[in-house]
Design a protein around this nucleic acid. Sequence first.
DNA 1: TTGTAAGCGTTATCAC
DNA 2: GTGATAACGCTTACAA
Lengths: 344, 344
Amino acid sequence: MKLGQATIKDIAKALNISSSTVSRALKDYPGISNETKEKVKALAKKLNYRPNAVALSLRKSKSSTIGVIIPEVVHFFFSTVISGIEEVAYANGYNVILLQTNENVTREIAAVDTIISNQIDGLLVSFSKETSDFDHFKKLMDYHYPIVFFDRLPNLPDTVNVTVDDHTGAYKAVKHLIEQGYTKIIHLAGPENLKISIDRKEGYLKALQEAGIPIREDWIIPCPKGTPEESETICRALLSHPSDRPDAVFASNDIAAAGAMQAAKAIGLKLPEEFGAVGFSDWQFSSMIAPPLSSVSQPGFKMGEKAAQLLLEMIDSENEEAFTARTEMLETGLVIRKSSLRKG
Amino acid sequence: MKLGQATIKDIAKALNISSSTVSRALKDYPGISNETKEKVKALAKKLNYRPNAVALSLRKSKSSTIGVIIPEVVHFFFSTVISGIEEVAYANGYNVILLQTNENVTREIAAVDTIISNQIDGLLVSFSKETSDFDHFKKLMDYHYPIVFFDRLPNLPDTVNVTVDDHTGAYKAVKHLIEQGYTKIIHLAGPENLKISIDRKEGYLKALQEAGIPIREDWIIPCPKGTPEESETICRALLSHPSDRPDAVFASNDIAAAGAMQAAKAIGLKLPEEFGAVGFSDWQFSSMIAPPLSSVSQPGFKMGEKAAQLLLEMIDSENEEAFTARTEMLETGLVIRKSSLRKG
DNA sequence: TTGTAAGCGTTATCAC
DNA sequence: GTGATAACGCTTACAA
């Protein structure tokens, strides 16, 4: 799009000097007379000169743009992460290009192509549920391309990761349920190929084991879709046997927990007396449902900030340090609300 | 970032032909022998050639990227719109650059600068609450730069807009409350400088007038912050006079409605019998709170799609038609749930 | 059917 | 102190 933007050449012509002088004057290079500098700057201001970022990208092989590959934008947690990323990017003069995969590998691979074509300086990735082969990322990394994975971590060597401590979060949640006197606790699990799902499940298992509560495999139910309807249906079935009825749920996300609560309410159970619930993520709505849902809180904004910071370090650094494999683990909190408060 | 990407030159050298021939062969230009075409394409594939989008942008003054200026990413409605935008962009080979303003004019002006520098092809804008002077957009439009405003519409001549029919949505909501037998209906209004707030208020007024219910200015209360606490505090005060107590609320958004419901519950009113509520936007959580909140639904995804389509038409078009000022109005729905169902 | 050369806007290198 | 030139990767008149 042409915007009648003034270029360095325009300034040079108008002042009868060369473009190199203009370029140098604008950046306060040593060895340019103050007189020239001032003339140039004055005219630049007058013409509303803005350096052409595209020409710069081409020249420098650097776009000052980072890419974000994300499964879904309409998702409280992810949008919060994006927000954190955007803030850090803005503060450092970087732009953010958004690539939504809709949990679709093909889209993800196309996104990587876009990244390559557009000389994007680095990549923040939370891959799709479908992704099990990480070749498209591996290829980039082989070229020493800066990538930071967040939330969902790949099965690849030498990656830089940011995640939350899902294991401890889940453990705290289930321990809390046990302390509240619940003993028959089911777990609504997330997609099995995601490490976060596994970690949350293991936190659940650890808390049960520690309390000496026997583990029932049939009470660990995957909810791959992640809709409230899915978990409601599942829980209705489970809760319908009065003789062998669970008394609480720990869900891998708040939506599933909300679905479980719906099921319990529909059957006529009293919450939290007869059925307790703790979710994961502490979505915005969690405090507004009835009863307000206890949940493990994830620092989404912080995760975005941290991931972006690590990425910018990789981009800026000439040394290798920034590229050393590691996983930054952010702490989770437990927000206790009515849904799990059987005692006082 | 260098990715060892093959260029047209590399291919040319390897095959001992000129780069222009390679360029032409790759795009199936007429007047290139099949033999050359095949040789070139084969090598391109082997070398994993990807055209350098940056060079193309510079050459063509076209980046195949659209910018989205938005107040907040962490917002159910806005993130839904972004999602719609992203889908249309992807389907048409465009990238999306995201610029979050945090409801801050300074950020918004900086965003416009970014747009200019980066040769972004067009702009989708929902401006900040602070914005009352639209010069930064006007300047672009004077250069015939493609802009589509969505949701929040500016006070500027000759703009292309997409919005929802807030007026009718609000009208339907309040009419529904009246039909349910509520008569003392307060309105929690949005920021006064946004047209959407005004339209919603006017829909409210129209429904009351039509029903012959007198309007009380003191029952139209602005909630500029938009937090649940804000509206809860306001409503607690209002509901505390048993002699002159409102019996329903129509809120400019679901958060405010939820806050009002909290207040009513805290005071001991029965919902929906003694206090009814309808919100606006139909956020994800609305169906999960107690009682489930009735709400005017906005087609966020559709709005994103529509806005992006209009923008792409403007970008692609050589004729003026795509630029003719107009406002596309998307229909709102009324999702009736328990919070406003006093009668069966 | 193919090659040459200019140019998009910028800056690094060398020269004066 | 300043200027000329080449280069980033690609397209496109114009030549041949």
